[in-house]
């Protein structure tokens, strides 16, 4: 069968995009539209489900099936849909407030179940749609509308949370780093199991430049280390810095000063997430922040496969359900 070859434009809905001009969301939308045709999956079998927040308007702009649900709960809708329609490719679009505050519970449980869906978490470290309150990823001391004297909460790292929840695919990318973003989304889509992609996304209205150290091309090389499975961790504009594991600490070294063998080789496929967790905990400015695929582990059963396999197994063992037999099972009696 010849499937029509789709272009990015085929995935655009007829709705006007209503994000603020300059918002990082545009870049993510563009990369998604670019990546989906490469996956060769029919539009009608693709579903975007979101919660509430700026990022959660995303499904309206995709010419696929979609649901703009309620705050923090997108993974739950995805769970019901994917469990009953495993042939669909389901994407959850969420934000830092949506996934980590109000929806924290669903986020971790979806990951531990390893439902075969893709979660894209737009992290702008602020509440945008409610106009500028601090979020669970806002840095300590951040002054916002709701924290005039500075935020006193300790921030969460979505990657650490995901690894702790036994996620099988954990990655990070950056809105402005479009090529990397596209590759990461594609890798996420190709992973079987729950894929989490955190995307650093600039909110140019309420938190402009909060992650400029990673987003701006000039700064990025010094502050971000791009992970590649099987490759040493090297960064810097001149590729002059590396990450070394000494004892149970990661440290930055000058590549010129240490033998090449000393650098940490990234193992995204290691079943034990201990070193991946150490990478996830690297924070600017003390350390460069990792982007790319931290973890990608194959062979873990998925919730949607298993819930359907149990049904198949029960039918094979007991035969298809027979209402009449059910009603008459156990003790019955006749009244003449």
């Amino acid at each position: 069968m010849n499937l029509p070859v789709l272009k990015a434009a085929d995935f655009a809905s007829d709705q006007d995009v209503r994000w603020c001009p300059g918002c990082g969301d545009y870049s993510i939308l563009a990369q998604m539209k670019k990546v989906l045709p490469e996956l060769g999956y029919p539009r009608e079998k693709t579903v975007f489900i979101s919660g509430i927040g700026c990022s959660s308007r995303f499904p309206y702009y995709m010419n696929t099936y979609g649901m703009h649900s309620i705050h923090g709960r997108a993974p739950t809708f995805a769970t019901g849909l994917k469990s009953t329609r495993p042939e669909l490719m389901v994407w959850v679009i969420t934000g830092d407030g949506d996934a980590l505050s109000i929806g924290g519970n669903h986020f971790i449980h979806c990951l531990r179940r390893n439902l075969d869906i893709n979660i894209v978490l737009f992290n702008n470290r602020i509440y945008g749609l409610t106009k500028g309150q601090y979020s669970p990823t806002s840095v300590e001391g951040q002054v916002t509308k709701s924290t005039p004297m500075g935020a006193i909460d300790h921030p969460l790292s979505p990657l650490s949370v995901a690894l702790a929840a036994e996620a099988t695919f954990v990655a990070r990318s950056i809105d402005a780093h479009v090529k990397h973003l596209g590759q990461t989304l594609k890798a996420a889509a190709e992973h079987k199991g729950t894929s989490l992609v955190e995307v650093y996304q600039n909110c140019n209205v309420f938190n402009d430049g909060a992650m400029a150290y990673a987003q701006e091309k000039k700064q990025r090389a010094e502050n971000v280390v791009e992970l590649e499975h099987g490759k040493p961790l090297i960064f810097g504009a001149q590729s002059d810095k590396g990450i070394r594991l000494t004892g149970n600490q990661l440290e930055v070294v000058n590549t010129a000063d240490v033998p090449a063998d000393d650098l940490l080789i990234h193992d995204a496929q290691a079943p034990n997430p201990a070193i991946q967790m150490m990478l996830a905990r690297m924070r600017y400015p003390e350390m460069p922040e990792p982007i790319g695929v931290l973890r990608s582990v194959k062979g873990v059963t998925t919730y949607d496969d298993q819930i359907n396999e149990q049904v198949t197994a029960a039918k094979a063992k007991q035969g298809d359900g027979d209402l009449n037999a059910l009603f008459h099972s156990g003790d019955t009696w006749q009244v003449a």
């Binding site: 649900s69 709960r73 809708f77 995805a78 769970t79 019901g80 849909l81 469990s83 449980h109």
Partner: peptide, 13 residues
């Protein structure tokens, strides 16, 4: 909430 969320997701499907 997850229970009804999944229920609505299944209804959509």
């Amino acid at each position: 909430i997850a229970a009804i969320g999944a229920t609505i997701g299944a209804a959509f499907g």
